[in-house]
Design a protein around this nucleic acid. Sequence first.
DNA 1: TGTACATCAGTGAACGCGCGTTCACTGATGTAC
DNA 2: TGTACATCAGTGAACGCGCGTTCACTGATGTAC
Lengths: 185, 185
Amino acid sequence: MRYSHNHKALTYQRILKEAAGLFRRDGIGATGLQPLMKSLGLTHGGFYAHFASKNELVEKALQQAACEVDGLCADIFSQPQPLHAFIDTYLSQWHVTSPHEGCPLPTMSAEMAQQGHASPTTDSVINARLGQIQNTLPGADAEEQSIMIFASLVGALVLARSTESDALREKILDVTRNTLKQSAE
Amino acid sequence: MRYSHNHKALTYQRILKEAAGLFRRDGIGATGLQPLMKSLGLTHGGFYAHFASKNELVEKALQQAACEVDGLCADIFSQPQPLHAFIDTYLSQWHVTSPHEGCPLPTMSAEMAQQGHASPTTDSVINARLGQIQNTLPGADAEEQSIMIFASLVGALVLARSTESDALREKILDVTRNTLKQSAE
DNA sequence: TGTACATCAGTGAACGCGCGTTCACTGATGTAC
DNA sequence: TGTACATCAGTGAACGCGCGTTCACTGATGTAC
């Protein structure tokens, strides 16, 4: 082989990682394969040595983003993260201004659904988040509570990212954060 | 003048209405001006007799969508709609499958924010919905409650539209609907 | 009433551009002898 | 150790296409005489 035995696998991962970021930050449709490959110092023709089509990349990038966020949500020792920490992270300034590193549901999955390319990965990402929240809840209605909490988090994040006024954005984040945390005691 | 004195104004409104629907259903980037004009039986060149650019249309279409939804939310006698009715409408099967007629926040505003084209209209749409909910609430913390309720609605709608599994979608909608309605007594 | 003219909403070809995709090619490498 | 060869990740020109935008134009109309 021309390069080290895992050179191609490394390039594949670099493409995946970059795409997962750009798709979430700029949108899938707004991210061209040409600029994507160029940002990695490669030419666009080589893309098809790694993926059959842009659609395949989109699917794989969603999985990649899901894994990144899974890792981000689990703490260092793979213990369930306390609920208040998850809430703080999900509604942080960082998450609002860093969609390229954040939850792919309000960005990639929403656009994929709009284009009629729903993916089972989306459901598994939703279920992963719900399960993660559920694990921190004691009661019998933990599943219902987890859905309410996560829907609030997603909605507040979407609204916060859409607002132009800093005051309105802060109010949405603060109120949602505080209400969720105090209702969880 | 060539046509009736308000012919141009009518065409303007037809473009606006069609765009407000397509932008919400397919996305702004995925909606071309050529297909848009063609779907009205017009040619694309005439577009610029009505709007200076696609960006101007986007801004005006967001306002149009906001007005449509305002009208949809207010009841016939312009009385505030009962909260439970608003919740039922926002989380209805109809709203999930008819983004072209629904709230422009999870569709247009989210994409506009992603593209760096935040609009004051978005903030006013958010404030309008919050105010509408607030009017149905008695307590002193009506503002906080309205934010929590609306964030939950937006999040549940975004998640429901993204899911592939009917069961998961129904569960998200049902749980959010029921929990919000019973917590509002 | 009949004719000439000015208006202007809408036409459609053309512009440069970036898109996703294809493909004949390159050239640095590991392998075989 | 030295040379010839096969491999194959990456190159870059080219494809047809649709995009947003421009512009010289058409032709049905209301108005003026």
